[in-house]
């Protein structure tokens, strides 16, 4: 077996998986904390990718730099969506089902808005460093994916630290584990859910830009992203940030290796076959849900 190809595809897989992990942690949080399976999560990530693309084209702003205003913007946007669309639905008895239907609708609307604005053609983000590579021994690294990787690691790290170290982050975990007690000690559930949702969608923006650094994208791309989100979150254990990250990398490695060594039509059957195997053996995911 070709060792260089092996290592190269391993690295490619890790990079891809880490970016999916960044997209996945927010999805996982909304699912775990709010019992909302946020179908339009990836669509918000895709909007961020398009806006970053537009900023780069028009003003030459670096896609990663554009996150400085995009993440807060998405946060506010998400708070609005939460307050006026999600919150009324969370009062329903079957939160999971009704929120899925609602956010599925949001995803369709968002997708069509993107179609209207940007059209159906695939886009590729090309920055000054896109075609650059650096070489370490027999391996070469493209700048853009490495930038996406660094951003993903930083993003997951920030979310992890937020949940573990800040009072608000601890309230998010507390509300999740024991919502009555959290309220009894002063946590405003509506406010905490809004912050959770805002952060999740904000990080989806970063994840979307990360994926846009790796692949071309068009207004339907979020559907495929969403499937990978389910994969990453279910394997990693719902709500488990580091588990989600590990699952992202694991799935990235599997996909990366099978892309390199198997015919293309085998890649997805293999990946999803493994998902089913995981669920059969460990219905709650590979990692213990530790929030």
């Amino acid at each position: 077996m070709n060792t260089v190809l092996l290592v190269q595809s391993l690295i490619g897989g890790i990079i891809m998986g880490s970016v999916y992990a960044l997209l996945g942690v927010g999805f996982s949080l909304t699912w775990g904390v709010m019992r909302v399976i946020h179908i339009s999560h990836a669509a918000f990530g895709l909007i961020a990718a398009f806006v970053a693309y537009g900023c780069l084209q028009r003003w030459g702003i670096d896609p990663i730099a554009s996150l400085v205003f995009m993440v807060p913007l998405l946060f506010c946007c998400a708070c609005f969506v939460y307050r006026f669309l999600i919150l009324p639905v969370t009062k329903a008895r079957e939160v999971i089902v009704s929120s899925m239907i609602l956010t599925f609708g949001i995803a369709i609307i968002v997708e069509n808005i993107m179609l209207l604005i940007w059209g159906p053609d695939p886009r590729l983000i090309t920055t000054w460093y896109t075609s650059r590579v650096f070489i370490v021994g027999p391996f070469y690294f493209q700048y853009a994916p490495v930038a996406g990787f660094v951003m993903a690691v930083a993003g997951v790290g920030v979310i992890h630290l937020f949940l573990k170290k800040t009072y608000t982050g601890k309230a998010v975990r507390a509300a999740w584990q024991q919502s009555d007690a959290a309220q009894l000690y002063g946590v405003n559930l509506t406010r905490i859910s809004m912050i959770t949702f805002g952060l999740a969608v904000g990080s989806a923006g970063a994840g979307g830009v990360g994926l846009a650094l790796l692949y071309s994208f068009e207004p339907h791309a979020h559907n495929l992203w969403l499937i990978y989100l389910f994969l990453v979150v279910i394997v990693g254990g719902v709500g488990n940030v580091l588990g989600t990250a590990a699952a992202g990398v694991l799935i990235g490695i599997i996909t990366g290796l099978s892309l390199a060594f198997l015919p293309y039509q085998w890649v997805n059957p293999l990946t999803f076959g493994l998902l089913m195997a995981v669920l059969a053996v460990r219905p709650h995911g590979l990692f213990r849900s530790e929030v």
Binding site: Y167, K170, A171, R173, A174, Q177, Q178, D180, A181, A182, L184, Y185, G186, V187, S289, E290, V291
Partner: peptide, 26 residues
């Protein structure tokens, strides 16, 4: 007005210290 609820309702996966910190959330 603070209630210690029936069945304790601790934050099971958080540490002892974090549970205490959450008590002082307000």
């Amino acid at each position: 007005i603070v209630q210690a609820p029936e069945g304790r309702k601790l934050f099971a996966k958080m540490t002892v210290e974090e549970n205490l910190q959450m008590g002082a959330y307000s």
